[in-house]
């Protein structure tokens, strides 16, 4: 189980999360929706201990172990992987090199190159991604859609048990969105992983059906529902009384 309890976080002197709590049971899919700039992406980075943020209170645990304040790579090694909405590019560092190094660190033994190459090629095929990206520098010269698929290629190889998908739908056309969603659904089915989806749009949730949808407002979750909450947001918007009523009741 992944659990955040009463988390309060700041960037410089600005409070981003205020007594934020969330529980994701094994195998569940949760979606967080909210207005622009409300702290959704920040939440993802805080989970991975991005050094830009300061935690003033609260706890984060994964499988009953505290991960708050742990080095980022240890959180990742525990099985948590973040797919950023704008994956960066790194010149001179290939996907192959990163994945080999990450696998070596994770398994603490030499990897089977034959099996590794086969898995990479199969994942590229599923993702409709040109296999030449395996040997290319990370995200260099890749389109927005290709960047997202490259991140999913990393998931296929590193096999995390908890996925954080930060606006994975941004910059994807309908066809690419279907490919990406199918890949995630298949991965979820095969591994029983948990997923935390950050999105603005219901469309992604049409393809990847969440167990719960949460609304983030004022640094905390103000409303939780099922898929129909996303439908409500889609038709009424975040300015509707879905959020306002909750804010009034605080």
């Amino acid at each position: 189980m992944f659990k955040i309890s009463n988390l309060t976080a700041y960037i410089e002197s600005k409070k981003i999360l205020d007594d934020f709590s969330l529980e994701v049971n094994d195998g569940e899919i949760h979606a967080i929706m909210g207005k622009n700039g409300i702290g959704k992406s920040t939440l993802c980075k805080i989970i991975l201990n991005d050094p830009h943020y300061e935690i003033k209170a609260g706890h984060i645990t994964y499988n009953n172990e505290s991960i708050l304040g742990k080095p980022t790579y240890e959180i990742a090694k525990a099985g948590i992987m973040l797919v950023n909405q704008n994956p960066i590019s790194i010149e001179g560092v290939t996907n192959m090199e990163v994945l080999r190094t990450a696998l070596r660190e994770k398994n603490e033994e030499n990897i089977n190159i034959f099996k590794f190459n086969k898995e990479m090629e199969e994942a590229c095929q599923k993702l409709e991604l040109d296999p030449k990206f395996i040997h290319k520098d990370i995200n260099v010269g890749a389109s927005g859609g290709e960047r997202k698929k490259i991140e999913l290629l990393h998931i296929a190889i590193l096999k995390p048990s908890f996925l954080i998908l930060d606006e994975i739908d941004s910059g994807l056309d309908v066809d690419a969105l279907k490919v990406v969603s199918n890949f995630i659904n298949e991965y979820h089915k095969q591994t029983g992983c948990s997923i935390l989806i950050i999105t603005h749009h219901k469309q992604l949730l049409d393809y990847i059906k969440p167990n719960y949808v949460h609304i983030l407002s004022g640094g905390k979750i103000t409303k939780t529902g099922d898929y129909h909450l996303a439908e409500e947001i889609e038709s009424l918007g975040f300015r509707s009384n879905i959020i306002d009523e909750d804010e009034k009741s605080e």
Binding site: P51, Y73, A76, K77, I88
Partner: peptide, 29 residues
């Protein structure tokens, strides 16, 4: 670059190994 170091660490690569990777790319590119 902190952003690149963070990215590599989110893949489960220790800071020490991430620096080795960035060092090599900086020198070889």
């Amino acid at each position: 670059p902190l952003e690149e170091l963070f990215y590599l660490q989110t893949k489960g690569i220790s800071k020490e190994e991430a620096i080795k990777i960035l060092k090599k790319s900086f020198l070889f590119n």
